[in-house]
Simulated scan of single mutants.
Amino acid sequence: MNSPITLDALKVLDAIERKKSFAAAADELFRVPSAVSYTVNKLEEDLGVELFDRSKRKAQLTPVGTMLIDQGRLILKATDELTRLAQQSANGWEAELRICIDSILLFKPIYALIAQFQQEYPWINIRVTEEVLGGTWDSLIADSTDLIIGATGESHNRDFNVQSLGEIDFVFAVAKDHPLVDEPVPISDRAIKQYSSIVVADSSRGLPSRSEGLLDGQSRITVPTVQKKIEAHLLGVGIGFLPVHRIQDELESGELVSLQLASYESRTNQLIMAWNKDNQGKALAWFIEKIQAISDKLI
């Protein structure tokens, strides 16, 4: 069934309500008043309802007319948004860009880029998610994100473009009042295995889970993010390796203490940014370029 409520009729009603006059609405719409009146009369006739109370000097809506305009404006807004989306899509701009940030990174520099992007392109939505270890790659493989930032390891997928963001260093760190602080250095495996290791849960759903820095037989406490791991270290709940760039302030203040271990060499990880080769979106290209320029601030 064809509805008598057309976009043109909704635009006429919207103009009348805002201008409080059929004549003023006609001026705004560049029409003669009789054409505006005809549109309203025809709509009332087709619907079988009165939209305006004609006993008043000014154009005053009936309750049904108020409801129709309130809902009609939502339709007009959605139509405008759909038109803009169609135009920006034709010009190579995405309706939404999905960014997955690995838990190991500092988010603030990326948020600053998002704020800059929104100033320039406020009509494009940004969706930010956080994953851990294999979960970051998993999100790209599953096509639930367009750009991953801070991934580690190899993608094993030739469909992805991969860009290095640099290396991060790890140190074995414990709270300032942890018993290991009083152990002779380098700290032995025997001493380490007395305490639980704080590990971050791999959020991967499709790839094999990964864990790092564990000794055989050592108990573990699993937490959801790197930030939660740092908090657990500070409380003395457990021990383990932490990325240096995330705990600089705590190391300088002495809240965390870096310890030398007997059986571990220094640890580094290569951080990666990756995206699907087929994705030619302009928003994606904007972020790739900007993130490359600030990669040193991420770590």
Rank of each mutant, 00 (worst) to 15 (best):
I110Y: 00
S144Q: 14
R98S: 07
P122V: 05
R98D: 03
A142L: 12
P122I: 06
T145F: 02
I148M: 08
R98V: 07
I141L: 13
S103F: 04
I101V: 15
Q119N: 11
I148N: 07
I126W: 02
F117V: 03
E131W: 01
Q119R: 12
E120V: 13
T152D: 10
W123R: 08
W123M: 07
T145A: 09
D138Q: 07
T152I: 15
D138Y: 14
T145V: 10
E96F: 05
Q119D: 09
G135E: 00
A151G: 13
N125Q: 13
Y111L: 13
L97N: 04
D159I: 06
L133G: 06
L133P: 07
F107E: 08
G150T: 15
S103V: 12
A151V: 10
G153P: 15
S155F: 05
I149S: 01
E94G: 08
S144E: 14
R158M: 11
E94H: 03
T129M: 03
R158S: 12
S155C: 13
D159W: 06
N125Y: 12
Y121I: 09
C100I: 11
P109K: 04
E96D: 02
S139K: 04
Y121G: 06
I114K: 04
D102A: 09
L133D: 06
K108P: 10
I126R: 01
N125W: 05
A112H: 05
P122L: 11
Q119A: 12
I124R: 04
N125D: 09
E94S: 07
S103Y: 06
E94R: 06
L140Q: 02
Q118E: 08
V128S: 00
R98I: 07
D146Y: 02
A142C: 14
F107L: 10
L133K: 14
L140W: 05
N125E: 12
A95N: 10
L133A: 13
I148E: 00
L105Y: 11
L97K: 07
W123T: 10
E130D: 05
G135S: 10
N125F: 12
L106G: 10
E96Y: 02
P109L: 07
Y111R: 09
A115H: 12
E96R: 05
S155E: 06
V132I: 11
V132T: 11
T136S: 11
D143P: 12
L97Y: 09
G153T: 15
G135I: 04
V128N: 01
I114E: 03
L147V: 04
D143V: 15
P122Y: 10
T145G: 03
Y121E: 08
T129F: 00
L147R: 01
I110D: 01
L106D: 08
I101R: 02
D102T: 10
A151R: 05
L133I: 11
Q116V: 05
D146N: 09
G150F: 11
T145D: 03
F117P: 04
T136F: 08
I99G: 00
